[in-house]
Amino acid sequence: MLTIIDRYILKKYLGTFLMLLLLFIPIGITVNLAEKIGKILESEVPLIEVITYYGYFTIYFANLLFPLFLFLSVIWFTSKMANNTEIVAVLSSGISFYRFLRPYLIGATIVCIGALVMGMYLAPMASKGYNEFSYRYLKKGKSDRDQANVYRQINDNDVIFVSSFNAANKSGTFFTLEHFEGNELEYKISANRINFNEADSTYTLFNYVKREIGKENDVLITKSRFDTIFPFEMDDLTPVNYIAETLNYNELNDFIDKELKRGSSYINRYEVVRQKRWSLPVSAYILTLIAVAVSSKKRRGGMGVNLAIGILIGMVFVFFDKVFGTMAEQSDFSPFVATWFPNIIFGVLAIYLLYGAKR
């Protein structure tokens, strides 16, 4: 059962966090709009699409930076309580320091659950709208799917290779498909160019060559142009780099399973996204404990000192998160270790700081 003190601290915890979000999100929107307004006007984007875009931007922005906002908000109101000697009064009444932490942990649980729901379902939807608007109006002529040397295993029997891929016209150059039965190569298809026809979901191959592997002699079939059907679409071959961010958790799990079977070279990037869906909400507890430990003591410099320390720790946390995430995306470094390592390091720091704050 919540006491008066619990309700008082919990109200400040959630209220200050929401207030900080409401203050910084308009600033983020204003800065983004000032940067993009020229391209928006040049593209003559309908007003309703601009409003929708900034709705997506709000969710995207809040989900991305909520740990930092939460950290600063806890430091802010806890420092204010310390300066007003409210914390001294609470502890002098016989309440232990760890009991004093209970409303903070309850607040962190509420934020964690909200962040989980947002990260699993709302943020992917917002990320999709945010990125689609950016590539449609703000990055004209630039495609995230123009790639070189695309190699994919599309099912248990077929492996394909495309030397280069152009997303704008859905075409590739120097295409090959190898079909296996067990470990035996049955046939190989090659073409100088491949085009995907959206109207009927067929493919056109130019300078088509099919080599059927025989026990004694191979059969060679050549055509200058050949229309056919394959068990894949161009979007499946070269998914956009941000595709994982746009999928809810269930869809992301299915997508990663499919990409593993296809031998995708971007598996680590997708795994980092999946692990962050869990690690970021959990960071609410760790950052809350650090913030309380840093700001519960009344300092000579007042709130300014606590905020300075908090901003420094917050920046280091973001730095660790970005560096290890990038390491996992671009190397064989474990995505699980990369995403949870900052939480582990700062969890140890939280325990150390809490011990010092209790003393």
Rank of each mutant, 00 (worst) to 15 (best):
Y13P: 02
Y13Q: 10
L21Q: 09
I25P: 02
I29F: 08
G38W: 06
L41G: 09
S43V: 09
S43K: 06
V45K: 09
I51Q: 09
T58G: 10
A62D: 03
F69M: 12
S73A: 12
S73N: 08
K80I: 09
K80P: 01
A82Y: 14
N83S: 10
V88W: 01
L105I: 11
I110A: 09
C112W: 06
A115L: 06
A123V: 12
P124S: 07
E132Q: 07
E132A: 01
G141S: 04
V150E: 00
N155F: 08
D158I: 04
I160N: 01
S163G: 02
S164I: 04
T173C: 00
T173L: 04
T176E: 00
N183K: 08
E184M: 07
Y187E: 09
S190C: 05
I194V: 14
D200V: 09
Y203L: 01
L205R: 00
F206M: 01
Y208M: 03
K210H: 01
G214K: 04
G214Y: 07
K215E: 14
D227L: 05
T228A: 01
T228L: 02
F230W: 05
M234S: 02
L237A: 03
P239D: 04
Y242C: 02
I243Y: 00
I243M: 03
T246C: 08
E259W: 02
S264D: 13
I267F: 10
Y270T: 03
V272S: 03
W278S: 06
A284N: 05
L287V: 13
A291N: 07
R299K: 13
G304H: 07
V305I: 14
N306T: 09
N306K: 06
L307I: 13
L307T: 06
V318S: 11
V318F: 15
F319C: 12
F320C: 13
F320E: 03
K322R: 12
S331E: 12
D332V: 06
F333R: 06
S334Y: 14
T339W: 04
F341L: 15
N343E: 12
F346K: 06
F346A: 06
G347F: 06
G347C: 09
G347W: 04
I351L: 13
I351V: 14
L354A: 12
G356N: 11
